[in-house]
């Protein structure tokens, strides 16, 4: 039997990351689930599922960690934080942490994991951005980080594409997660719900299904693309 393909999923303990772990396990992959905290979560290491506890704010620790994990066929950069602070109350600390976790850590992860993908001439990377990349957002630095993810998705697709590596992104609209419950003020939630066709927030498993498609079945010519999972909340 051929060795199972391995996916590394960041921010895997909850929400979209957790649903992605389930989707990739169902697709027959081995999954390395990375999060800074698995407490209270239902993820338990077993068979094809390995848990790695790590805070991605520590950028210097990323390359050695990836090197220790062995073969990675798929990287899902899902981990992200949102502070929900208006810009006049933002702190340096909150900004620095957000930009490290949302923007710099995925770049470090891609740099580290792409070396082996280039050697094999294959690999798939999926980055989680957001409609916040296209629209105004109450958390200014969150929007900036998500727009940055769109940008580096294209940049890495251009760098890695000629080596057979796909780099794509998924841009969800409002999704039923802790992040939406915590961060979205009731007015913003209402505004988002007015725009979506189905009058409901998306489910994490719907985003995970798109990630799974990009990580497994999507044609190799789909590269540098951003798939909107927005149900009309933003039409690009």
């Amino acid at each position: 039997m051929a060795q199972l393909r391995t996916a590394l999923v960041t921010g895997a303990a909850r929400g979209i990351g957790r649903a992605t772990v389930d989707a990739l396990l169902s697709a027959g992959m081995r999954v390395i689930a990375l999060d800074r905290n698995f407490e209270g979560g239902a993820l338990v290491a077993s068979g094809p599922l390995e848990l790695v506890r790590q805070d991605l704010e520590d950028l210097a620790a990323i390359a050695p960690r990836v090197a220790a994990l062995g073969r990675i066929d798929v990287l899902v950069n899902n981990a992200g934080v949102q502070n929900g602070l208006p810009i006049e109350r933002y702190t340096d600390e909150a900004r620095t942490r957000l930009l490290r976790v949302n923007l710099e850590a995925p770049v470090e992860l891609i740099r580290a994991a792409s070396k082996q993908m280039i050697e094999r001439g294959s690999g798939r990377i999926v980055n989680l951005t957001s409609v916040a990349a296209y629209m105004p957002h109450q958390d200014l630095w969150y929007g900036v980080s998500k727009a940055g993810i769109v940008s580096f998705t294209r940049s890495f697709a251009a760098v890695l594409g000629p080596h057979g590596v796909q780099v794509n992104a998924v841009a969800p609209g409002p999704i039923e997660t802790d992040m939406l419950r915590r961060a979205a003020a009731p007015e913003r939630r209402e505004l988002l719900m007015k725009a979506v066709y189905s009058k409901r927030a998306g489910r994490p498993d719907e985003v995970a299904d798109v990630i799974r498609w990009l990580a497994t079945d999507a044609p190799v010519l789909i590269n540098g693309a951003v798939i909107d999972v927005t149900d009309g909340s933003f039409l690009r």
Binding site: Y197, V207, W213, I222, G224, V226, V229, T230, L235
Partner: peptide
């Protein structure tokens, strides 16, 4: 595709 993918345009253009 999931039902939340609606009104979207999927680029198949390889850069």
């Amino acid at each position: 595709c999931p039902e939340y993918v609606n009104g979207a345009t999927l680029d198949v253009n390889n850069g």
